[in-house]
Design a protein around this nucleic acid. Structure first.
Length: 297
DNA sequence: CCATGACCCTGTAAGC
DNA sequence: TGCTTACAGGGTCATG
């Protein structure tokens, strides 16, 4: 589930408890998630201070003293929740959900923030497509996970010229090209659908065909670059506001409600002003694509 | 290089 | 109320 906006929302929610805190204890409840945990995972974390909590694409990166970085990926179903004395004692509104899910609590970090009571941060992941590992901070860019990763979609590197260049000669459909993490890193199935809808582009169209002008006269790649950024920004804002300080009443962090224009709206009317089309669902690269055949061309 | 499908794993919703 | 099937927002790998 979590794409870049969700991961960014989780990062903001965890920042306050991670940054400057000492990792006094870590618990690891199984040997592996998607991948095995590194050797001595817990021991290599305990007793160390966390400098900062960052993000690259859909990866959360905790900078830890002594040139270490804790890499965390949420996969499809990963989420965090924060337990304090308060949330622990909170009566049963979420008790049912919680007990049901507790068997998927795989990791817990006990953190001592500089000027606040200790907290416990719990990682829960039913499908276990997420993972955690440790790396050297100073050589992170050459780490196998990051070596081939494309640009951040929220930075200045994403613009029309970049897309024009990377999409030239690409006959692959726009949908697949935008899902390719080696070009732009952090987009997933939902936000690719949403960005293409905003730009009025048909997801089936070959990537190399959008170097021309779009309807309003701007270059189509420029419009797409702009719409990708706008889509992500809006989703991050929605995440922030819907979580109230990014933490729900029960301490959970992860998914948030968001209204989509195309994604998961098969058979429903297109939301574009003046368009009377109906959202269709097709399958591309073995995944659902939602789009409006009448205004996405 | 590209496209496709299988796979990793569990939970949920829909259909019978 | 089962039971079965399809599908889910992540990514990787083998194959044609």
């Amino acid at each position: 589930m979590p794409e870049l906006p969700e991961v960014e929302t989780v990062r903001r929610g965890l920042m306050a408890v991670f940054e400057g805190a000492t990792l006094i204890k870590a618990e690891q409840n199984r040997a592996d998630l998607r991948f095995p945990f590194p050797k001595d995972f817990v021991a290599r974390l305990e007793g160390h201070k966390v400098h900062s909590l960052g993000r690259r694409s859909k990866y959360l990166l905790a900078d830890i003293e002594a040139d270490k970085v804790l890499i965390m990926h949420l996969g499809m179903s990963g989420s965090f929740r924060i337990e304090t004395e308060q949330t622990k004692k909170m009566p049963g509104l979420f008790a049912h959900t919680r007990s049901k899910n507790e068997k998927h609590d795989h990791v817990a970090f006990h953190l001592a923030p500089p000027n606040a009571p200790n907290v416990k941060v719990i990682y829960n992941d039913p499908r276990r497509f997420g993972f955690m590992t440790l790396a050297k901070r100073s050589t992170l860019e050459t780490h196998p996970l990051f070596e081939k990763l494309g640009i951040e979609p929220l930075g200045n590197a994403l613009n029309g010229a970049f897309l024009s260049k990377r999409f030239a000669n690409k006959k692959t459909p726009l949908k697949a090209a935008l899902l390719d993490q080696r070009i732009v890193a952090g987009l997933g199935n939902i936000y690719v659908c949403e960005a293409l809808w905003r730009s009025g582009l048909d997801p089936r169209r070959s990537a190399n065909t959008i170097s021309g002008r779009s309807g309003n006269g701007t270059k189509a790649t420029e419009r797409l670059a702009h719409d990708i950024r706008a889509t992500l920004h809006d989703a991050i804002e929605a995440g922030g506001s819907s979580l109230r300080d990014h933490v729900r009443a029960d301490g959970s962090l992860g998914y948030f409600q968001h209204t989509f224009a195309a994604y998961d709206r098969e058979g429903e009317p297109c939301k574009r002003l003046g368009c009377d089309g109906t959202i269709q669902r097709i399958v591309q690269s073995n995944r659902s694509t939602f789009y409006c055949p009448s205004c996405q061309r």
